[in-house]
Design a protein around this nucleic acid. Structure first.
Lengths: 208, 208, 208, 208
DNA sequence: AATGAATGAGCATTCATTCAT
DNA sequence: AATGAATGAATGCTCATTCAT
């Protein structure tokens, strides 16, 4: 079959991944729109034009679907565009914030924040929490770096990271992709907000 | 019985309210701990030492229970200790933030943030959203006041309010009442965080 | 109390009966309007302005309430105004029909026909069926009498009685007390219908 | 499997309809035997040897099951064997009565009469009432035809139709399929009963 | 690679009934 | 004579999951 169609159709294996990915995307969007528990496997299947049972060819449970969504989001977060080592702590935070907001407004990022870990089975929930802790530590390290190099005022880095994640994650709650606030504007403003909140002194601040 | 025990037992009407309140508290805590959908009415009833059916004497549905939790939280938020009119916009925000954090870490406040409106029936969900919009507007007004009186730097007040609510609400996600971070410490730090983020210039800032 | 009010208030015992009767009437009407199973004890109580629990002072179960309604109806049917012995079988049937229709459109009569015996506990159901059999036999006897005295054409009396009861009972289904067909008219027409159906020959018929 | 067994097994689609129909039949019989409310979905499922949940593959609610039973009954009633146009009004009624009795003693016909519309959701109840009104009108028209052509004595056609339906429907109440009165006998007798009741004069009557 | 059919477990909800007061 | 409060049992319904085809 794939030979008859020449190179038009991707090889079977790749098709599998493609479909799997499409299913995850559809699932994440449905979860974001109506909540995990108000989204049945039938809903997701219908969205894809297949049967409930077909999903079990790609996933072994509803839990796994959510887990994969979370995993993809966490992977995206931990592999944000490499941040140059030359930058000051504050500049690193700035770069991180910009990259993070971009993630958080997409399907999987929103899913991570909006759905939370409650629905996950204990084992998977723990894996996700570990992943999020890694992301958290990333930011904490940057803050500590900044405090040491004098670009960030002295403060409890762990708490501060939580505040920042709060401001960023919350975007997923109120931002509507089709709304009036385009994401570029938001990124810029939230970056200013965070930088002002933590910068050591006025001279390093922007947007004031 | 009530005569024999003197004034120890409250009158029946008050007992009703007391029990109802206790049920709401138990429900909110259960929702916060395991999520709305993983909490069955049986769980809540068991926690209270009564039967599932007994809950229906006080509430007409599971939905109503959640709705009441949200309503109580919203009422608490809109009736935060009156903030003096003499204060600058920035000072008002400061007072608001401190009061808000106190609410958000309690049963109903956490429930509001953690459960969200997805599980609610459309009608009740809309009422809650309206309530939250009122709270949002409260903060927006303070920010605008601050911009006018020069205590807060110029910026999009609506967006800024969202960032602040993000930092504050997120506390409900990561703070464990029994954890190492006591709430006084958090309140103080998050207040500094917010004030620094929005203040007009360094002279008005604290905690740097 | 009853002395203070002189003879105005009936003696306590009679009051009990009065209230009991009122409750039965309310129950029958509710059953007729919405069906036995869609009528809760709370509905009946509300109609009477008392509490669900109060009904248990007068009846020991919902089943008993329905049973009493049926019993009252059957009593009314078996004690229709005595029919003179001098009459022909056909004339007896005529008198019976007129009396029966009057019963069937009232609360308890309608309740008997509309509710049926399904909801009753086996024991009570059997009692009711026995009562209805007695009524049935009453009519069968009249028909047999008529066949013997030549006023009614020869036919299976048991079957014929069933047909007649069908025509009569069905009135409870379609007749609305507030509707356009007043009961006098109906009585007259259904009597003609029945008489024509069973009379021996045209000479005895009316209403043609 | 279906190949191995040749044409013995009907195609899948047809099997679906067959099972659905069997479920309806089982339901109707159970309703007739114990009443709608004393019949749980579990009872029906058990009768069919499947699970409660399996029924939801074929019907979306208990209400729908009853509604379908009623619908089938009404369809059967409105599509009684076409009655020749050449017949007199009286002869048409005669044909109608015979056909109707055949329906009323079968599962769905009995269900229609015995269960009534109370249990149905308002919307479905209204549809059923409309259907029954159509059947009623059918008979009214025949009577009016008969009055015009002189075969039926002058009388209120609507009331008369009600009396006839009463005699016919009531058969569902007292007739036991396994009883001593076979349905042929009943049909014949009730037809005589009705014809005598409405015929214009003795010459057209039968069975006297 | 996907489907139709069926299952089992769980859950919210209703309601007749009880009982201390 | 009546009530408030609570119970237990039953029931309709949903949904993730399975499996033969």
């Amino acid at each position: 079959m794939s030979q008859r169609w020449g190179q038009v159709l991707p090889p079977r294996e790749e098709q599998y991944e493609l479909k799997r990915r499409a299913a995850l995307e559809a699932a994440a969007n449905a979860f974001n729109a109506h909540g995990f528990y108000k989204t049945s496997l039938g809903d997701i299947a219908a969205e894809l034009g297949v049967t409930k049972a077909a999903l079990y060819y790609y996933f072994k449970s509803k839990d796994e679907i959510l887990f994969e969504c979370h995993t993809l989001a966490i992977e995206a977060m931990t592999s944000l565009p490499a941040i140059s080592e030359d930058l000051s702590g504050l500049q690193k935070v700035e770069a991180f914030v910009l990259g993070y907001v971009d993630m958080i407004v997409q399907s999987f990022g929103r899913c991570l924040v909006l759905t939370g870990t409650h629905p996950l089975e204990p084992e998977n929930a723990e894996k996700c929490r570990a992943g999020r802790r890694r992301v958290h530590d990333l930011l904490v390290d940057m803050i500590n770096t900044g405090v040491k190099d004098g670009s960030i005022r002295s403060q409890d880095a762990r708490l501060t990271a939580n505040f920042i994640f709060g401001a960023l994650n919350w975007v997923a709650q109120w931002h509507r992709p089709d709304g009036r606030d385009d994401i570029v504007r938001i990124s810029h403003d939230v970056k200013d907000f965070v930088i002002n909140a933590i910068a050591a002194d006025v001279s390093t601040k922007e947007g004031a």
